[in-house]
Design a protein around this nucleic acid. Sequence first.
DNA 1: TCTGGGGTCCTAGGACCC
DNA 2: TCTGGGGTCCTAGGACCC
Length: 414
Amino acid sequence: MPLRRIAHLDMDAFFASVELLRYPQLKGLPVVIGGGRREVDEMVRKQYAGLPLGEIPASAFPLLKDYVGRGVITTATYPARQFGVGSAMGMMKAARLCPQAIVLPVDFEEVRRYSRLFKGTIAEIAPVVEDRGVDEVYIDFTDVPGGQREGGRALARLIQRAILEKTGLTCSIGVAPNKLIAKMASEFNKPNGISVLYEADVQAKIWPLPVRKINGIGPKAEVKLAKLHLHTIGDIAAQEREWLVDNFGKSYGAWMHDAAWGRDDRPVVTESEPVSMSRETTFDRDLHAVRDRAELGSIFTDLCKQVASDLQRKGYVGRTIGIKLRYDDFRIATRDHTIDHFIADAKTIRQVAGQCLKRVPLDRRLRLLGVRVGKLAKAGSPEAHALPAVGTPAPVGHRVAEPSPPFEGTLDLF
DNA sequence: TCTGGGGTCCTAGGACCC
DNA sequence: TCTGGGGTCCTAGGACCC
C-alpha cells in the first residue's frame, strides 16, 4: 500500500502576480489589487496608447493615497506586505499604512484565464485535482507515478516548474498525509517554496502554530479558545476530547480535537455541483429604502437579471429564491422562499425576491443588496422537470408567492 | 478609515408525516 | 386526553473560506 500523499498548492500573490506579467516594470514595488477602478487603468493605458504596456512608466500608475471608495484589498505584493498591508484589508486603512503603493483593479477575465492555465498544467501531470477557488487546489499524489519519491517533493518540483514555464507564475506547495496538514504546510515556505510533512512531524511542526492556522478555525473560534487559554494547536491537542465537545459542541469539538492531532480523512474531490448562485453589490453610499427607492429598484432588478443570466449560461435552474441585505450598522438580514418548480428567469426571480423584500425590516439605511437562487438542478435534468407528486403537501408554513407588480420599471420595489 | 463578492456547511426551531 | 420517536423540508442566521 502506497502512503497517502496529498498536496496543497497555492499560487503566490496570484492576482498581483498576474498583473506583474503585464507590467513587469512594477516588480519590486508595493502594488495592491482591489477596488473597482478599471477606468483609471484604462486612462493610464490610453494616455500611453501606442506604447507597449511594459514600457508605461511606473510613475504613471495611480497610488493608494489617491484612492477613494469602499473596496478591500484582494492581494498585495510582497513589498506591500512589508508595510502590513494584506488581503481583505480595507483600502482606506491600507492607504494609511502604505500610501505610495500602486493600486490596480482586479482583471477577472485575465485571472480566470491564468487559473485555467495553471490548473490544466497540473491535471496533465496529476489527474486527481480539487478546485479550491481561483488560486488554490488540492492534488492527490498517492497513485501518481513518482508521487512517493522524496515524500512527494520530486513531483511538487515538477509541477512548480511546469506551471512556471506555462504561466510565468510561481506557487507554493505543501505535501502531507492529508488535506489539513498539506494546507498548513503550503504556507511554510512562501513564496515559491515546497514543504513536505509526515505524520510524525505533527508534534514538532504543527503544535507550536497558533490555532488560527487550522483551516476551519476562524476569528470567532479563536476568541473563544483564547478565553479558555488555548492559543496554539498543541494547546487544543492537550485537551480531552470530551472537554472540547462540552465547550464547542458535539460536531465542532470532536472535529477540533481530530484537527489538532493532524487527523483528516477527507478525500480529494474532483467534481462537485453548485448549491447556489448569487449576486450582491455594496453601494457607493448607504441607501435609504424610501428616499432612494428608484435607485434601489433598478439595482435590485439588475441583480436579478445577473443571477438569471449566470444560471442560464451555466445551465442551472433553482427553486429557492432569496435576498440578502446589509444595513449601515453591518448587520445582515436574509429572507428566502421556495417555490414548487424550478426556474432560471429574471422575471420570476424578481417577483419572488420582491416578496422576500417585503418581509424584512427597512428602517435602517442599506449598504448592500444581494439576490440568490438555491436548490439548484441541472437545466433539463429529470429532477428539474419533476413537480411535487400528487398528494405531496404544499411547502409548509406559507402561502405561495402572491402575484406581484409588473417586472419592468423600478417603482414597484417592496 | 470601517470592513468586497462569491461561495459552503452547520444549527435550530417549527410544520408535518408515519 | 395524553403520550412517543424518527424523519424531512423550510427558513434564518452565522461561521468560515478564497
